[in-house]
């Protein structure tokens, strides 16, 4: 790990993204060291989500370079969609992803996470019966399931109640330093103290 720690885990150079004629990202450059915590802030529609999707490899840039030094199974991504099947229960969803990610001792791991996020009692109910906040908690379990080296979290506090927010605070704080974070929020006050780097978006251009 020592040799990789000095290299940036995520590096962008002149990164641009356009959808048709609409320019979303324009000539963005930044780098994120392994173990760092990059906080991406800015108003709605400034391009935060697009940047995170690019870093997760869900889309390709229109121009520029983007290097992300992790394999797919070392990446955890939380987006606007919870990425859970609505017709399956929380347990079935996590079982599915644990199998696909080859999580060792998956039953114990799933139990531990659901317990931590206060969802163990709800494990056999379908996602479609959950409230938004409950779905977000299970979505966080899915992201953390395989303890990814790089965590890309897009507005992770969305829909969480006060207890949920405190829980997430604690989860992020205990992983700070061991994992690399790329987190977007429109309300930076909550996690500012964790950030090692910041990227503030105005309309389409980061400063």
């Amino acid at each position: 790990m020592a040799d990789t720690a000095s290299l940036p885990l995520v590096r962008a150079q002149g990164l641009s993204k356009r959808y048709g004629d609409k320019r979303v990202l324009s000539k963005l450059s930044f780098s994120l060291q392994s173990g760092g915590f990059l906080l991406v802030t800015g108003p709605n529609g400034a391009g935060k989500s697009t940047l995170l999707r690019l870093c997760a490899g869900l889309e390709g840039p229109t121009a520029g370079e983007l290097e992300v030094g992790v394999e797919r199974d070392e990446l955890g991504y939380l987006g606007h969609e919870p990425l859970l099947y609505r017709e399956l229960t929380a347990l079935e969803n996590l079982e599915l992803f644990a199998k696909l990610y080859r999580v060792p001792e998956r039953r114990d791991r799933i139990h531990e996470l659901l317990e931590r996020f206060g969802m163990w009692g709800e494990r056999d109910n379908r996602i479609s019966t959950y409230s938004r906040g409950m779905i977000q908690r299970v979505a966080l379990c899915r992201v953390l399931l395989h303890e990814p080296r790089l965590l890309i979290l897009d507005e992770p506090y969305t829909a969480l109640d006060a207890a949920g927010c405190e829980l997430l605070d604690a989860v992020l704080a205990e992983r700070r330093g061991n994992h690399t974070f790329l987190v977007s929020t429109h309300d930076p006050a909550r996690i500012e103290h964790l950030a090692s780097d910041r990227l503030a978006f105005a309309e389409g251009a980061a400063t």
Binding site: A56, R72, G79, H80, E81, L83, L84, L100, R102
Partner: peptide, 17 residues
Amino acid sequence: APEREQGMFDGLLLSPV
């Protein structure tokens, strides 16, 4: 349909399968 309605294509594409 299950993938499309819930944005699950992203979920599957992110996974290492």
